[in-house]
Design a protein around this nucleic acid. Structure first.
Lengths: 242, 242
DNA sequence: GAGTGGTCTAGACCACTGC
DNA sequence: CAGTGGTCTAGACCACTCG
């Protein structure tokens, strides 16, 4: 007769779900090691190979990081490698540059039509808006406007942003317990308005990259909406197509 | 005593190399099935699991495509899914559009400084340059200028391009035996010059996306250099950050 | 039903890390 | 040295496709 399960889910995927759940619940913090494969196998009552396959997938999704001989670790934005995963900007000339984030403004507002739709909030829910400048080698290259759900980022202010050393996502992770996992970007070319042209020190009307990003945390929950204007005078957005 | 191999390579990676070699030699054509895992295991004298792991990696790299119950197939650009992998342009409004490639020009030239460096040719080697327009739903959206090594694409001309139904990479694959595997893109914002503005039906000076792409075939050999100008009036470049 | 890929297991052994 | 992830094997069984 028939196979009555239209949604067959292999064992390793269920294990993956359980590990994900523990991760989401904060059982192990970013940067910490999770239990060894053998331990997890015992805990879930499956073979080590099955746990391994679950972890394989999660490592491929950048949720976990394996280090041979040491263990498996919860991925963290404090790791410098994560920085380049989320800012695909490289100098035209090549080489590596020092980057520097300068918070400009930070204020409260109510979610409008667009913000509420994208962030999954109700109309009028509190949101926080941050504007910041990103410099490479001391030159301004990116202006970001960042929209955040007010509830999740309650204590956020200009002072907090200025004090913190490290990337914004690293701050979100350590101070607010929100880990960005993946993001979608929509890129267009626009002309610089007067204010942003001044900030980026380019002529008004210059072509800029407009990069709209929606970031998601566990369970595909959107937690950030961001619009960046990138000056591509000396940099470019780099992308690999596999 | 010591492990004298500083470059340890697991068995499955060597098997991967052998399969890659067969693929490169054209033992199985794009779209065709490769032998079953058990057959390959016997051929290489390893266990089925080892072959499986080799194929796993190659499937992750989009070189092979697994289909349960049917077999494992050589990936092909004739598959419509491959099209979206290499053209990350979607309508702002959402939905799916019909695309249409219109070849404009095709001429021979000698490789200059830049072209020879990027395509790995000698200065003065023959190259072919193609200009084409890409329409979505009947509206012009992309102008491409494509630089190809003349030797590899000897018979290419405007007539061939016009006759062929399907994507350019599909043509390259079936007519010239060249399979694009991966590509790097560098994106900037530029102002439309007069000629391209007319083609794309936007005002002169409008901001456009400049997308420079270098495509590689087996063995990381560069075989295409392309510069596209994308009108982002009604479309955007879409990218997922994992 | 035969053949394919997909899952799961158990056990042996290798490579790397740190004490 | 013990403990971790990484590889390889052999065999059993499941899910899917097609004739």
């Amino acid at each position: 007769m028939a196979n009555e399960s239209p949604t067959f889910s292999p064992l390793y995927r269920q294990i993956k779900g359980l590990i994900l759940q523990a991760l989401e619940a904060g059982e192990w913090r970013p940067g910490e090691a999770i239990p060894s494969e053998t331990e997890l196998a015992a805990r879930f009552g499956v073979s080590q190979g099955t746990v391994r396959k679950a972890i394989d997938e999660m490592a491929a999704e950048n949720l976990l990081v394996r280090r041979q001989g040491k263990g498996t670790f919860v991925a963290t934005h404090s790791d410098p490698r994560a920085f380049f995963r989320f800012l695909r900007l490289i100098p035209l000339a090549g080489g590596i540059e020092q980057s520097n984030s300068i918070p400009l403004e930070c204020w409260r507002a109510k979610a409008g039509q667009e913000a509420s739709r994208i962030l999954g909030l109700k109309l009028g829910d509190p949101i926080i808006i941050v504007r910041r400048l990103l410099e490479f080698s001391g030159k301004p290259v990116v202006v970001d406007e960042i929209y955040l759900p007010g509830e999740t980022f309650a204590g956020l202010g200009l002072d907090v942003l200025k004090d913190y050393q490290g990337s914004v996502y690293s701050l979100f992770e350590t101070r607010f317990g929100v880990r960005m996992i993946r993001a979608e970007e929509r890129i267009r070319a626009v002309a610089a308005d007067r204010a942003n042209a001044e900030l980026l020190r380019v002529p008004e009307g210059s072509p800029l990259l407009s990069v709209e990003r929606v970031s998601y945390t566990y369970g595909d929950k959107p937690v950030e909406w961001r619009r960046g204007l990138y000056s591509t005078a000396e940099h470019c957005y780099y992308n690999e197509l596999g």
